[in-house]
Structure formats: structure tokens, C-alpha cells
């Protein structure tokens, strides 16, 4: 009696939630950018991908779904050769769940084709995270042994979780070009 659970990406101002088909980080707001709008290595300072919202959505829940968490293999920065201090960043809250409620979704913006706005940017950052004392975390710190707490809500009906908000940060010694394949993981409890 397992629910059907899928990973979704949110895009646009609506937003539109689409079952993930290509999670490539890029410099436009698209769930499937193809080879367009790649991340760009900066000549100075930092460049960012547009941020992404990823959540799980489910149908056919038995009694409840709860304890939603997320993790990486812990070697994203080195595998993607993001440079010294480059990383996959994840939006963090000062307390409680780190996931962004669907009502607080905010469309990713930036300079298309060059850089996204930093999640924590005081002006153009993500409203749910930019005023927090916490700075966005290094996703490599969240592994199967210590996953990110996305959502502790107990859900009793069909629906969707809060979102993990992530973006790639590239520095000047990052490597331009095709990226190695990486696996990300959501966990949830269900009965």
C-alpha cells in the first residue's frame, strides 16, 4: 500500500510544477533547458545558476506521509568542478524546517545566460531565505548520514511537500563544460 511519489520542479510565476525530467542547473528559469543557458564560469567574483525548487508530490496516500528529508552524495562541488569555494548551495532557515512552503515559492531571476541572483542577495534574493541569519548551506554537508530536514509536517491527504531550494555557485577556477552525473535523494516515511 505504497503511495505514488514523484519529484517535481517548480518554474514560472504560477508556479507550474513538473515531474522532474532534467534537473540541470542553468541560467534561466526552466525545468528542461536542454543545452541552452549553461552556467558560466566568472572572470571575477561569483556566478550562480538560477535557483531551483524541488519537492515531492504524492497520490494514493494510505494514512499519512511525514519526515521528508533530502541529501546529496557529499561530493557535488568536486564532481562538478565548481572551483575553490564553489558549491551547490541550499536555502536554510534559522530554525524549523528548511524547506520552502509552496505558498512562499519565488520564481528564480537573474541575468539570463550569465548568472542567477544569489538566494541570500539582500535585494533580489529569495524572500523566504534572504532575511535569515543563516547563510545558504553547502549541499555537500547533507548526506545519507545527516540529511537536510525539508518538511516535518504530517500529511494525511494527497499533496506535496515543502521545497528544497538550491543553486550552483561557480568561482573563477571552476571548469566550464559538460557536468558529470550525480544522484540526489528524497526520503519520507509513509503508513
Amino acid at each position: 500500500m505504497a503511495a505514488t511519489v514523484n519529484v517535481e520542479e517548480g518554474n514560472g510565476s504560477g508556479p507550474t510544477w513538473t515531474v522532474i525530467t532534467s534537473g540541470r542547473y542553468c541560467t534561466t528559469d526552466s525545468y528542461n533547458p536542454g543545452s541552452n543557458y549553461p552556467c558560466v564560469v566568472p572572470t571575477s567574483g561569483n556566478n550562480y545558476s538560477y535557483w531551483k525548487h524541488h519537492r515531492i508530490a504524492w497520490t494514493g496516500v494510505g494514512t499519512q506521509i511525514s519526515n521528508i528529508r533530502w541529501y546529496t552524495p557529499g561530493n557535488v562541488a568536486s564532481t562538478w568542478q565548481l572551483g575553490t569555494g564553489g558549491q551547490l548551495m541550499v536555502g536554510l532557515r534559522d530554525s524549523g524546517d528548511h524547506g520552502c512552503p509552496t505558498a512562499n515559492y519565488q520564481q528564480a531571476t537573474g541575468t539570463q545566460g550569465t548568472t542567477g541572483h544569489y538566494i541570500k542577495d539582500a535585494t533580489n534574493g529569495h524572500d523566504y531565505y534572504k532575511s535569515q541569519a543563516a547563510t545558504p548551506g553547502d549541499a555537500d554537508n547533507y548526506t545519507s548520514a545527516s540529511p537536510l530536514t525539508v518538511d516535518t509536517t504530517v500529511y494525511n491527504a494527497n499533496g506535496a511537500s515543502k521545497s528544497v531550494v538550491t543553486q550552483v555557485k561557480l568561482v573563477t577556477d571552476a571548469t566550464q563544460g559538460d557536468k558529470s552525473n550525480i544522484t540526489f535523494t528524497f526520503l519520507y516515511d509513509e503508513i
Binding site: 505504497a2 511519489v5 552525473n181 528524497f186 503508513i191
Partner: peptide
């Protein structure tokens, strides 16, 4: 005690 399923969804890109 309580019993429950723990679901795991891995998503990864490939060529």
C-alpha cells in the same frame, strides 16, 4: 511501537 514504510526517491541525470 509503530510501523511504517520509509520511501526513498533517487533522481539522477544521465546521458
Amino acid at each position: 511501537a509503530r510501523v511504517f514504510f520509509r520511501g526513498k526517491i533517487e533522481y539522477s541525470d544521465f546521458y
